[in-house]
Design a protein around this nucleic acid. Structure first.
Lengths: 248, 248
DNA sequence: CGCCGTTTTGAGCAGCATCAATTGAAGTGG
DNA sequence: CCACTTCAATTGATGCTGCTCAAAACGGCG
């Protein structure tokens, strides 16, 4: 597809992405099979349940949410995705994607056709291993999430969410203390098993406690230590870091 | 190791296990690398967090629970495992298992040394694909679990749990309507984000409503239709079937 | 400017947790 | 083999966290 002259080599998120464990030669082979497509706009669907599984996708810019739905119309967000994240693993199960993956803003993706990826992985042990590793990470994150949902209070959940976002942005070279939420309060609540009202109330509470500053979608973390004290659990298995954007 | 003259070929759970998509030749190669070890006893740990990742494990008989712990001592059960289930995928992430996997009764396992499995998978596309597929299933199940925990009432959660157990036993050739719980009420509650008391109260309520019969650990499902009516969600993405024993 | 989706704030309520006590079952050792 | 200990399960009384319902303020966009 259109190239846009982007290569894994000079991608600023390659340390988070599939290439992380590949050497230069391997990265070049990977580059060969990647299709870089035109941007998606806000609310565009990258995958939809039932759609034939063909590819994994790496987020190049922007942000996505993944969610599943139940037959009675309930919606459950399973993760938010930022640059470097891989999505689409849910599709391997039955050769059909199981989730919606929707752009939360104008975003770009790298498409990794699975057949080619699979063939490459037969030759490259590191690639083979890396894919399993990413899926394993996802599984561990989901397990941490189960603990968060079952054992933590609303306050602890939101504190986890904010510190995790902070970590993720930091990993990507963005500010760890000031960032824009691309998701609504409603979506945050959906992920965390809380209502909008509770999320809103907690954000204002945190602000009153001089832990954060909230200006609409803009979050400024004033007292990161105070925020971390609100985590029920100082450090869980997979640290919940990178959790809130589970590869789906 | 001691052989016990069990082979995948004649294992009554091979339709649920890794061999499901392999042909006879492939299954034989797999058999070559499997180590069948002596039985584990109740409460024995198959894996422990931090332990070096070496193998995946297939449950051959008995049952296991997997759980993670947080630094403040909280424990979160992430799944129950029955014959044919594969456990250990959590270890790929950092070359160390992340969870405890503990026998709930006297149980047998097949050990699949990962290095050998990986080498085999370079040659066998079906095996390669199958491993990813199993992990993908696990991820989808975990996502269903998130919806269950975030959106369903206590009653709906327990109804889900019971129907899922029923399905899983049925898949394994056991009775779908009468089975023994190998886990305690406490462990059920832990998985479902409920307290022991709530689980106990609900079981007695279901019994009063003539939906099930409870005699200690022995559950008899009297009215499967009535039970399914209690599910908030008649059919979710991965049906939550096979969910409650997530491969960890 | 006016509309609509999002966010905030308040008041009241309920589902499930917590605390407490009893019973039952299982395992242990004398 | 039985007494004792320990753990699991049941049942009741009470309370709290976070949900529900409602309404107003805000903000982006055509």
């Amino acid at each position: 597809m259109t190239d846009f002259t982007i290569r894994c080599q000079n991608c600023s998120f390659n340390h988070l992405c599939i290439p992380v464990s590949l050497n230069n030669t391997e990265m070049n082979s990977l580059d060969e099979i990647i299709e870089r497509k035109r941007p998606l706009h806000k609310n565009d669907q990258l995958t939809v349940p039932g759609q034939k599984f063909t590819s994994l996708f790496a987020v190049r810019s922007g942000s996505f949410k993944s969610y599943i739905t139940s037959s009675d119309g309930e919606q459950q967000i399973t993760g938010f995705h930022f640059p470097g994240d891989i999505v689409g693993f849910d599709g391997l199960y039955s050769d059909q994607y199981q989730s919606y993956t929707q752009a939360m803003e104008t975003s770009m993706i790298c498409e990794l056709p699975y057949e080619k990826l699979d063939q490459m992985s037969a030759q490259l042990p590191t690639l083979r291993r890396e894919m399993l590793k990413i899926m394993s990470t996802e599984i561990n994150q989901d397990h941490s999430m189960m603990m968060l949902l079952n054992k933590r209070t609303a306050e602890e959940r939101l504190a986890h969410f904010l510190t995790t976002l902070s970590d993720r942005f930091s990993n990507r070279g963005f500010s760890a203390v000031e960032f824009n939420l691309t998701m609504t309060r409603n979506e945050i609540g959906n992920l965390l098993g809380l209502t909008v009202e509770t999320v809103s109330r907690l954000l204002t509470r945190f602000q009153k406690e001089n832990i954060i500053n909230v200006d609409g979608k803009l979050i400024h973390i004033v007292d990161i230590v105070g925020l971390k004290q609100k985590l029920g659990d100082p450090s869980s298995a997979v640290s919940c870091s990178e959790k809130f954007g589970t590869h789906n």
